[in-house]
Design a protein around this nucleic acid. Structure first.
Length: 117
RNA sequence: CAAGUAAGCUGGACAGCCGCGCGGCCGGGGCGAAAGGCCCGGCUGUAAGGAAAGUCCGGGCUCCGCAGGGCAAGGAUAACGGGUAACACCCGCCGGGGGCGACCCUAGGAAAAGUGCAACAGAGAUAUACCGCUGGGCGGGGCUCCGCCGCGCCCAGCAAGGGUGGAAAGGUGGGGUAAGAGCCCACCCAAUGGCGUGGAAGCGUCCAUUGCUGUAAACUCUAUCCGGAGCAACGCCGUGGAGGGACACACAGGCCGGCCCGGCCGUCCCGGGGAGGCGGCUUGAGCGUACUGGCAACAGUGCGUCGAGAUAGAUGGCUGUCUUGAAAGACAGAACCCGGCUUACAGGCUUACUUGCACA
RNA sequence: GCUAGUGUGGCUCAGAGGUAGAGCAGCUCACUCGUAAUGAGCAGGCCGUGGGUUCGAUUCCCACCACUAGCU
């Protein structure tokens, strides 16, 4: 990814849960907060409730792909945490994509254009 | 053809674009004395499983303990023979149980070393006599009053029949007896010893002796095995902070700075090692194939071959073609590595065999 | 990755081979003008699931499932 590193430390996640702005859909919960850096940082949470290791890995890879393909439309300099919810395991990629973009516009990380075809 | 039994295989394939981890090669940029390191880019190779799972056993490897050996404690295993690095696994075989059969299941040492337990029911549970059967004695009764037949009590004998139970002390038939009883006989069953056979467990039955409840996944006994912890093991590097030592009191040295002036700071070494980094980290009881030995598990030899190594964790998204009725649709993600076991699993394929039906 | 522990009535727990129990909660009755408390009675359980040992298993053994805790 061009200008994004991953978010790893547990205290970083907890800070975002408490102080970040949030938006929720049936598939995701997204928290974000501006950091004073030139790059964005992305953290992905796939909890044990989602299922076994195969299901958790698939959801995590799809979220990373969503972020990678739409990274150019997002504003840099933010810490972002995406928490997968249970229904994301059973959703198709297109459903996840629409939900992801809607949440990004809601958090004003992406310019409010009209929806992609 | 139908129903079934056993063993094994497979777990969509190919191509293109974008993206990620690791290895190799090449190019560019800055730092550096150089090797080379860091960053960026390109090409190329490669990348989850039959169970990677559960963590139930057995090992390799590493550290700790230990002169060597033994005993005790604790734990594990349990017919016999073999395989293996080892095993609780596998193969063969025996005994027992199930199925018409192919075949399947089986923790399967010792109860005659000892201790314990066996509720309820039943007269009685490791030895007994409730109802009974039989003989003798006494009392009294009936009849056709010699004699025979019931009844009550006492004494003695018996364990066949009844019933209870998971289990009642070998089973069935006959003789025998007052009534009975392996008391005796025939056949059968079980145990022990001898004999024959087999490599052994075992099997056979001619013979002899005996007739003994079950339970050891109750304590126990016998035989064999086991030191403990785990790659987050362990080894190396290691800013800061705390400790010790050496030098030194400014004319030295370090940092800021293009340089001077100026400003700030004691410096170096030792040891331990928190954060972090590197190694361990993938070539191994490896995989494929052919031959040989063996019923088999397996072993040996020759040839060929290298197939992940991440560290918050790399495989995703889109498109097309093929096979399909329909195109992904089962269970499921390596984390030091192997051998097993157990559990989950859509669909498909192969081989051998059994039973039934039909036809030749 | 590794190591322990627990599953029993609606809830909290006993029971350690022989008919499953206690307290709270629930229902009915009594007492009271009424409620609470108290007393009497009642119902509610495949003992987490599946095998095995045993005459007999909630208990013993094996496998699985779920949950909880700990180490790093």
């Amino acid at each position: 990814m061009e200008h994004t590193v991953s978010l790893k430390q547990n205290h970083e996640f907890r800070r975002l849960y408490q102080k970040g702005k949030s938006a929720v859909s049936p598939y995701f919960a997204v928290y974000c907060r501006p950091n004073r850096r030139s790059v964005s940082r992305l953290g992905i949470t796939t909890g044990v409730k989602l299922g076994n290791a195969v299901k958790r890995n698939r959801v995590r890879r799809r979220i990373r792909e969503l972020y990678r393909t739409h990274e150019g439309q997002l504003l840099p300099g933010y810490d972002i945490v995406v928490v997968a919810r249970t229904r994301a395991v059973f959703a198709s990629y297109q459903e996840l994509r629409h939900s992801f973009l809607r949440l990004m516009r809601k958090l004003e990380l992406a310019p409010p254009r009209e929806a992609e075809r």
